[in-house]
Design a protein around this nucleic acid. Structure first.
Lengths: 107, 107
DNA sequence: TGGCTACATATAGAGAGCCTACATGTAGAC
DNA sequence: GTCTACATGTAGGCTCTCTATATGTAGCCA
């Protein structure tokens, strides 16, 4: 997967994955890998900064927890984040429709 | 259309639009606008450098022409560009499938 | 004991591409 | 004489994703 292709879609991916259950960074990476059937292997250097950015933006909220002696920062979707995710989803469907039409015009 | 979303897909768009007829930069911008139903209004500062990049990469070839007293640089798809476009198309369909699956998992 | 792997978070710096803003010029309409 | 459409181009900025590196715990295995 070309990294540049993910640009501007990472937020939607991250918000989507914590939609129904709060997750910590490492688990988010695994969830993305699983949900994508192995196609998405996002590096930690992408995910952790992105999560903090989304928290700064108010779309996520985090709490520290200690599980099995290891510290985790668990992120959950805020109300604002839920609205953002809905917007990202419709933007995604508009996006694919538009690009698809240009790439394969049915004249 | 969020500019970042286009990242990594611009090449496919540009190659696609000159697939069946050579076009100059200005006409390429208009073609993108038309094919996308007005959704895509790519600025000249994006298109002209991108076209030169694609020519450097060997995917496009250009010729100068003068039409109605105005100079145009007309781009056409090379064989290498045609192969690249095919690759971009299948990458696009993989991409939408993968992201779509993450955004809307049918459990 | 020492080493390896999985788990877990984080930052610095690089790289690339799309954007805004600006510069330049012709043709035609009014 | 001014405005709009046509037409190309560059400089610089911005932002995001990536690579590489750092740090630390837990558990397994030899």
């Amino acid at each position: 997967m070309n990294p540049d292709a993910l640009r501007g879609h990472m937020d939607a991916l991250l918000l989507s994955v914590v939609e129904h259950e709060p997750l910590h960074g490492y688990a988010i990476i695994e969830a993305l890998r699983e949900r994508s059937g192995g196609a998405l292997d996002v590096p930690t250097g992408t995910v952790y900064p992105a999560l903090r950015r989304l928290e700064r933006a108010g779309f996520l909220a985090s709490e520290w927890a200690t599980v099995g002696g290891r510290k985790r920062r668990t992120y959950r979707l805020t109300d604002s984040g839920r609205a953002e995710l809905a917007g990202e989803r419709s933007a995604w469907s508009r996006f694919t429709r538009v690009i698809g039409r240009v790439l394969d015009p049915q004249t």
